[in-house]
Nucleic acid binder design. Structure first.
Length: 508
DNA sequence: CCATCGTTGACGAC
DNA sequence: GTCGTCAACGATGG
């Protein structure tokens, strides 16, 4: 097929899985005979990996894969209502897309701009090919309220590093005064697909998750009884829809503004719902403007801290065997639901890193990235930087207690009993610290600590004290070296910290 | 240089 | 429930 002279458009869906407020789709549908709406399934992301620590693919847990498939099915349905459909293809995305562009009659390629490094690299390849082939490319920013590049430019080339300065800099969204285009009445027909293999949106079974899926359906439990606020989500739970762009953050923003206009008393940023959208944009902006944002090394906004590499502690945390019921219950909710309350996430992230275990935040980030339905590259990394006091937030003396924090919200421990049924008969005075229960109580509750449920992996009092000390040392080293801490400097500090702790042991 | 402030810590005194 | 204390950080803005 002659390139560049074609009469069709290709709409490439990645995030932005929606038909409302979708400028790329709108442009793709304009003055064209044919429209090819494409989604490419990357096997690395979707196909079963038997070696992974939880059911799912190499990169994503089953809960998120399921959510993505449901979103795709919904998108397909909406496209069909408009006289089109979703063309699902499988393979390495850039290869598959280039093949489509070569084989099909395409003169215009449209896709939503994406600030993540993965897509930045992918999109360069695709744009390079398109420019050689004479294919017009339209790639608008529509995933966030603001264009991160604009905000960075306004700040002289560096992203703002505090929420407040971000908000001041960002101002009002450029589209705030005019209504967004949220309806499409019809779409052009799909053109000839030639030899490219097209499939329907697969079911989770078709991807090879048949057995697990049966288990999931059989085990599905709707929250019931007298749930604490952690069981019955006290938040909107819209995060996964925003992550995949099933819901436009801009449209959501406009809807919220409408509500605020009609309601006298309402909350305000940063704690209001609009505030949450602004936080999302803040993290997208910093992430886009910070090289190596997802690593400690080579990340200019990240404190260099001598985290340990203790796999046993990491696995105990990951697999909900820390011996702290509150921490373990949250981690079980993560495995089962792929979602936890925001503050529950804080609590377990602090525990793994600067609070108790002193394990590298990148390790915890990996676990969340895999298991959360709503895991979003910029926001997940931003929050791990935050909670580990590596960036944005630096008050490392403020440590969440694995005992008191949950108790404050749920004194009876209903949340723990729900996710850790082994503790369901433990009296409430011991439910957050079952190792302190007298043996007779443990026997009566049919839960012997150390046998039926683990003892604490570390004692919180001394472990958190030790962590504070390490953080103070690391901070002072960062200050002394003006942030330029080398691998070697960290090694030395690790040695020093070990020696110091040996001394303390000998003294006591 | 300095003052202010930061979405969400724990604990104890009142 | 609201305060101060703990110990004291860094980004920002003057």
């Amino acid at each position: 097929m002659a390139s560049g002279s074609g009469s069709g458009s290709l709409m490439w869906f990645r995030k932005g899985l929606r038909i409302h407020d979708n400028p790329a789709l709108e442009r793709a549908a304009q003055s064209t005979k044919f429209l090819y709406p494409v989604f490419i399934i990357d096997p690395h992301y979707m196909e079963p990996d038997p070696n992974a620590f939880s059911p799912g693919s190499k990169r994503a847990g089953l809960n998120r894969i399921r959510f993505l498939l449901q979103s795709l099915a919904d998108l397909d349905l909406n496209l069909r209502k408009l006289g089109s459909r979703l063309l699902v293809l499988k393979g390495e995305p850039s290869q598959v897309l280039l093949r489509c562009l070569k084989e099909w009659d395409v003169k215009k390629l449209c896709f939503e701009y994406d600030t993540e490094p993965y897509y930045q690299a992918l999109d360069i390849k695709v744009k390079d090919y398109a420019s050689i082939a004479g294919i017009e490319v339209y790639s608008p920013v529509s995933h966030t309220l603001f264009n991160p590049a604009d905000v960075i430019q306004k700040n002289g080339g560096r992203p703002p590093l505090s929420y407040q300065s971000f908000v001041k800099l960002a101002g009002q969204p450029s589209w705030a005064s005019s209504p967004l285009s949220v309806t499409i009445s019809s779409l052009p027909p799909v053109g000839d697909v030639g030899g490219c293999e097209i499939s329907e949106v697969p079911t989770i079974k078709e991807l090879g998750y048949g057995d697990i899926e049966q288990e999931w359906v059989a085990a599905f439990e709707k929250p019931k009884g007298d749930p604490s606020s952690f069981l019955k989500p006290a938040t909107t739970t819209l995060s996964p829809y925003l992550k995949f762009g099933c819901l436009s953050s801009r449209y959501f923003y406009q809807c919220l503004q409408d509500v605020y206009r009609n309601v006298k008393r309402h909350t305000s940023p940063p704690v209001s719902l609009v505030g949450q959208l602004l936080w999302r944009d803040f993290f997208y902006t910093v992430a886009f403007g910070t090289p190596n944002f997802d690593r400690m090394t080579g990340n200019r906004i990240c404190k260099q801290i001598p985290w340990n590499d203790n796999n046993e502690l990491l696995v105990a945390w990951r697999d909900a065997r820390t011996g702290y019921p509150w921490i373990d219950a949250v981690m079980i909710q993560l495995h089962k639901w792929g979602w936890m309350h925001h503050l529950a996430r804080h609590s377990v992230a602090c525990f793994l890193t600067r609070g108790d275990l002193f394990v590298h935040w990148e390790k915890g980030r990996d676990v969340f990235e895999r298991l959360l339905i709503d895991s979003d590259w910029a926001i997940n990394n931003g929050n791990w930087l935050w909670l580990s006091c590596s960036s944005f937030f630096y008050q490392y003396n403020r440590i969440y207690s694995p005992i008191s924090f949950g108790k404050k919200y749920d004194p009876n421990g209903d949340y723990i009993k729900h996710f850790l049924p082994i503790l369901k008969d433990m009296p409430k005075e011991y439910i957050y610290e079952p190792w302190t229960a007298p043996l007779s109580v443990q026997m009566k509750a049919k839960c012997i600590i150390g046998k039926d449920y683990p003892k604490p992996v570390v004692p919180h009092d001394s472990a958190s004290k030790e962590s504070r000390r390490k953080m103070a040392e690391a901070y002072s080293l960062n200050q002394k070296l003006n942030g330029k801490v080398s691998e070697e400097d960290l090694k030395k500090l690790r040695r020093k910290l070990e020696e110091d702790s040996e001394d303390t042991k000998q003294e006591s």
